[in-house]
């Protein structure tokens, strides 16, 4: 935790642009994310939501603009360095170590966080604190009973939970969640929302989600994207009433 400026924002992007050839997937995006809030990022398919997330987490190269985390510029940093700086992330398409057990998955994430310089001459099982970290998150995401199951054979919902667990182990200040509920059944989704709420308490979260009810319910602020730009942002009620949003996104003519 650093300085007084942090009270204002943890993550800030300044006029960022990501272009693929002539196509601008994200453009003109300037935004400040305040600490401890949950931001719902919505917009039609192809609006640039995931690309924006890629730009923030370092997976997409910016053609313009700058990104700051806690007032430190991270524009040129690689994804792993941003993770170290406190930016965690889950993916739209589940990215886990499918042929390893759930516990091994989490232990790797704990190891990556604790040992950036990879101490060498000792079996990884000897590092008690790594196992402790992994076990703590294991119970947080409610997968204690599946600890020694291969991650690839978990149910889809549990895989999504594991994905969030992996991101949590880097002790992020900002968590980017790309459609954590994608493909999750209705009953499981409720549990997942509860999980997201619980584990992200106190964190700044940027959440992409298509289920409007969920987004409106759990977000402190909503950001609406259209054609690579931020169309509108604000509290759920304001967004719902915004005629631009209704026309462009919700597809309603007034």
């Amino acid at each position: 935790m650093s300085g007084t400026s942090e009270a204002k924002h943890v993550l800030r992007c300044e006029d960022i642009e990501v272009s693929y050839g002539a196509f601008k997937a994200v453009t003109n995006v300037t935004y400040e994310f305040k600490p401890g809030l949950l931001y719902g990022l919505i917009g039609p398919n192809g609006a640039g939501k995931t690309t924006l997330m890629n730009a923030l987490s370092g997976r997409a190269r910016l053609s313009k603009g700058r990104v700051f985390l806690n007032d430190h510029e991270i524009t040129k940093q690689s994804p792993h360095a941003r993770t170290w700086a406190g930016l965690g992330r889950s993916f739209q398409i589940t990215q886990i170590f499918a042929e390893m057990t759930v516990f091994e998955n989490l232990r790797l994430a704990a190891q990556a966080h604790r040992f950036r310089l990879q101490p060498f001459w000792s079996p990884v099982g000897k590092f008690r604190e790594i196992a402790n970290d992994a076990e703590k998150v294991l119970s947080e995401i409610g997968l204690e009973n599946s600890a020694h199951v291969n991650a690839g054979s978990l149910s889809h919902g549990d895989q999504r939970a594991l994905e969030i667990g992996l991101a949590l182990l880097s002790e992020p200040k900002v968590l980017l969640l790309d459609e954590p509920l994608a493909g999750v059944g209705h009953d499981v989704a409720e549990k997942a929302v509860e999980l997201i709420r619980r584990v992200t308490e106190g964190l700044t979260v940027l959440l992409i989600e298509h289920n409007m009810d969920v987004v409106m319910e759990i977000s402190d602020e909503i950001i609406v994207m259209l054609a690579g730009e931020i169309l509108a942002s604000g509290e759920a009620e304001t967004i719902k009433r915004d005629p631009r949003v209704r026309t462009a996104y919700l597809g309603e003519e007034e």
């Binding site: 792993h80 190891q111 990556a112 990879q118 101490p119 060498f120 990884v124 590092f127 991101a167 182990l169």
Partner: peptide
């Protein structure tokens, strides 16, 4: 060792390995 485990992680899923740090 931690190095070997990290390499296994990279082999298994490079995107995720990079994202966990």
């Amino acid at each position: 060792s931690p190095l070997g485990q990290a390499l296994r992680a990279i082999k298994s899923n490079e995107v995720r390995a990079e994202q966990i740090g």
